[in-house]
């Protein structure tokens, strides 16, 4: 029985991995396009979960099980849900009200000021700039590809690295998060003067 190709061989050969990579990437790209093109902000929030799920699939292909699961748990569920709930609470514009995006004219018909024009092209500029920065960074760097086998117990490897080699950056990151937490609490707890409700009976 040993001489035949078994399921394990089919799944773990390079061609299957490449095919899976392309499938997941195509899915992720379609989902990302969906996120930015959907008129309904909340629905695009839900589509974002699909993007994060696909990225965690890429991590799984790279045998980074822990990262893939953390991606699902933190990004796909935790952060996206908080974003979606924040969107619901702030009551975003409905899908019909799209006048703002399409017309580069100010509301009273006067010619638009340079500041407003900047506001229109600004996001596109930032997007293109960051895309090219990341693209050149990925392509130019000569990445060290090690032929070392990935340890199946990569949680242990990660834990050891975080508490020995990279303990200082790790601590810095946690201090940063703590500062953000305290800042958020300070902002939320800021004492506002309670609005005086006037129940006057006017004659």
């Amino acid at each position: 029985m040993e001489q035949y190709m078994m399921l394990h061989d089919y799944v773990s050969n390079a061609a299957a991995e490449t095919a899976l990579f392309y499938l997941i990437s195509i899915f992720a790209i379609i989902m990302s396009v969906g996120v930015i093109s959907d008129r309904n902000v909340i629905r695009s929030g839900f589509i974002l979960i699909g993007v994060f799920g696909a990225i965690s699939g890429l991590f799984l292909l790279l045998q980074a099980q822990f990262l893939a699961l953390a991606q699902v748990m933190i990004y796909a569920v935790g952060i996206t849900l908080v974003v979606v709930i924040a969107l619901m609470l702030t009551n975003p514009r409905s899908e019909k009200d799209t006048s703002y995006e399409n017309e580069p004219v100010s509301k009273d018909g006067s010619p638009i000021s340079p500041f407003q024009r900047l506001r229109l092209i600004g996001p596109a500029f930032v997007g293109i700039l960051s895309f090219f920065t990341i693209y050149t960074a990925i392509r130019s760097e000569s990445w060290i590809a090690s032929g070392e086998q990935v340890s199946p117990d990569n949680v242990r490897v990660l834990g050891t690295a975080l508490t020995t080699t990279y303990s200082l950056p790790f601590e810095f990151a946690s201090v940063l998060l703590l500062a953000a937490l305290i800042g958020a609490i300070m902002l939320a707890k800021a004492e506002r003067p309670t609005p005086v409700i006037e129940i006057g009976i006017d004659e």
Binding site: I49, A76, T80, L81, V155
Partner: peptide, 21 residues
């Protein structure tokens, strides 16, 4: 799986999205 219980917890957090959906 080597990540056992973490896998279970990660997949147990997904239904939450479905409730909001």
């Amino acid at each position: 799986l080597p990540t056992g219980i973490f896998f279970v917890l990660a997949s147990a957090s997904i239904p939450l999205v479905a409730l909001v959906m």
